Amino acid sequence: MSIQHFRVALIPFFAAFCLPVFAHPETLVKVKDAEDQLGARVGYIELDLNSGKILESFRPEERFPMMSTFKVLLCGAVLSRVDAGQEQLGRRIHYSQNDLVEYSPVTEKHLTDGMTVRELCSAAITMSDNTAANLLLTTIGGPKELTAFLHNMGDHVTRLDRWEPELNEAIPNDERDTTMPAAMATTLRKLLTGELLTLASRQQLIDWMEADKVAGPLLRSALPAGWFIADKSGAGERGSRGIIAALGPDGKPSRIVVIYTTGSQATMDERNRQIAEIGASLIKHW
């Protein structure tokens, strides 16, 4: 067993022997301040990774656009098919120029040779490549099948209805392509620590998230040296922004954090800054 596999296998073990965790309302004060600064709703939840206990939450059962955070769930569904012998990570998928959609920095470079399922998941999570996500959605049967996968996990809230990039439209009061912070946090925890996926697939999923290259201005910008984070960000229309993450000190994750916002007129930089400040408060009061 590799060191990384050992780390993920012992996530519940280490967490069980940690000192009790206590909620700190100071972080919620910052979440509410972010709402004021952005002029928009902000949803927040913080779960203990081992027990699933909610440590703090704000608007945990209000719907927010998922945006690209759905790509972690998508690759979880792909990995479940791999575990069941219905898919192979090494299978190569070929596609054409007509398949390319807006923001496809990886797939646009491989029109000639195609990409493997493993490479597509890596591109979808680490670079948020939209064509990679659409190609992977095709392998599982489309958005409705991802929703069905989530329902089978016990998540009857999260739903995907459309493809990239239309799913980022974020129309107010439109339930399409949305989740709730509580539902997303619980589902992410199941994917990373539950028995739904094999140990190898859980490790692969967290490795992809740990290698995320496009979430630097968010929670990662607030992390002290030595902290662990595996995350996936999302951005959408109407001032929408979000991030889902597993993080913790001492090089291992111990909490799940989900943050979503929508309806702001603020710039992307300002949305990023507010999420980073929430992260800084979380870490300060850990």
Rank of each mutant, 00 (worst) to 15 (best):
M184S: 05
N50H: 09
I54F: 11
M153I: 09
Q88M: 15
L136M: 04
W286C: 10
P60I: 02
L247N: 00
G43Q: 04
I283Y: 02
E102H: 07
E35V: 02
N152Y: 06
D48E: 02
L120F: 01
R189T: 11
T131D: 03
K144F: 14
K53Y: 04
K232R: 15
V42Q: 00
N98Y: 00
W208N: 04
L199R: 02
E164Q: 10
G43R: 10
K30P: 15
L111Q: 01
L160V: 07
A235T: 08
L111H: 01
N50P: 05
P224S: 07
L167P: 05
K71T: 07
L199V: 03
I171M: 02
G194Y: 04
V78R: 10
E61A: 13
R159A: 04
Y44W: 13
S201E: 14
R189F: 12
G239P: 04
L120Y: 00
A246D: 09
L79K: 01
D231M: 15
G76L: 03
E87I: 15
I256T: 14
C75W: 08
F64N: 08
F58D: 15
N50M: 12
P172R: 05
E195C: 00
F70K: 02
G76Y: 00
D48V: 00
A211E: 06
G141F: 15
V78G: 08
V117G: 02
E102F: 10
G226W: 09
V258F: 07
T267V: 09
G236M: 14
C75Q: 08
T186V: 02
N130G: 02
L135Y: 13
E61W: 05
K190T: 11
L191P: 07
H285E: 06
R189D: 03
A211K: 00
A77E: 05
N130Q: 05
V214N: 02
I171N: 01
E164H: 12
K109W: 10
T178G: 05
L205F: 07
Q265S: 10
I243F: 03
R81E: 07
A123T: 00
G90H: 09
R159W: 07
L191F: 00
L100V: 09
F228L: 07
E56A: 06
R255W: 08
A215N: 02
P143M: 13
V101G: 01
L47P: 04
D48G: 00
L73Q: 14
G114N: 02
T131S: 13
M184P: 05
S122I: 14
S240W: 05
L188M: 12
K232H: 13
K213I: 00
L188A: 03
S240G: 06
H94T: 14
N152F: 01
R273I: 15
A266Q: 15
S254D: 01
M209S: 11
T186W: 01
L137R: 04
V106Q: 11
N130C: 09
E35P: 05
E108W: 08
A215C: 14
L205C: 02
M67Q: 08
A185I: 03
G52R: 05
T147M: 15
R241W: 14
L137G: 06
A124F: 05
M209Q: 13
I93V: 14
S281M: 06
L199T: 05
E237Q: 14
V214T: 07
R81P: 06
G85L: 01
G279V: 12
E119S: 14
L73M: 13
L136W: 01
T186M: 09
L120M: 07
K30A: 15
T186Y: 03
R255Q: 03
P105I: 09
G242I: 12
R41M: 02
A200F: 07
D207C: 10
D269L: 13
W286D: 03
A170F: 06
T112F: 08
G216R: 06
E166R: 10
H110K: 15
S281P: 06
R202Q: 08
V31G: 03
Q37R: 06
A211G: 04
P181A: 12
V82C: 06
P65W: 09
S80D: 14
P105C: 12
G248M: 06
G248R: 03
D250R: 05
S68D: 09
F58M: 11
W227D: 01
Y260E: 03
L135Q: 12
T186R: 04
L111G: 03
Q274V: 06
A215S: 14
E61Y: 08
S57T: 10
A225F: 03
Y44D: 11
L199E: 08
S201Q: 08
S201A: 14
G154A: 02
T261I: 04
L150R: 06
Q88V: 10
R159Y: 02
R63N: 00
E62I: 15
P253A: 12
L55R: 09
G234M: 11
T179N: 15
D231K: 00
R271N: 01
N173S: 08
S57L: 12
T158D: 15
D99F: 00
Q204K: 09
D33T: 04
E169G: 07
G234T: 06
A280N: 00
I171Q: 00
A77L: 10
P25K: 05
V257I: 03
P65K: 14
L196S: 12
L79G: 07
I45M: 08
K53M: 02
S80A: 08
A235S: 12
A222K: 15
I278Y: 15
N130A: 02
R81K: 02
V29H: 04
H285T: 02
E56F: 09
L192Q: 04
T116V: 07
Y44I: 13
I45R: 03
L167S: 07
A148F: 14
P65F: 08
G236V: 08
S104W: 11
S264E: 10
A133R: 03
I229E: 00
Q203C: 06
S80K: 00
E270Y: 15
R202T: 12
G242F: 12
V31M: 01
P224R: 07
G76M: 06
T112L: 09
L167R: 07
D33V: 02
A183I: 02
L28W: 09
I140L: 14
P65G: 09
H110Q: 13
V258H: 08
A124P: 04
L28I: 15
R220W: 06
A230I: 13
N98A: 07
D177R: 05
G43D: 06
D33K: 03
A280E: 01
L218I: 11
E46S: 06
S96W: 08
S281C: 14
D113F: 09
L219P: 13
D99S: 15
A215E: 04
L55G: 04
G43P: 05
L282D: 15
I278T: 11
R189V: 08
G226Q: 13
K284V: 03
D207H: 06
P60F: 12
S233G: 10
A222C: 14
S201V: 11
T139A: 03
G236Q: 14
G154H: 03
D269V: 09
R91H: 04
L137D: 10
G251W: 01
G234W: 11
P217S: 11
T158Y: 01
S264Y: 03
L205Y: 11
H110N: 03
V106I: 00
S221K: 15
I171T: 13
A266I: 15
E62L: 11
L120C: 00
P165M: 02
Q204L: 10
G39T: 14
D174G: 09
L28Q: 02
V42P: 00
P224G: 10
R202D: 09
T261G: 05
Y44M: 14
K53I: 00
N152P: 12
T187I: 00
G114S: 12
R59H: 01
R91Q: 13
S80R: 13
R59Q: 04
P143C: 03
E237W: 08
R159N: 15
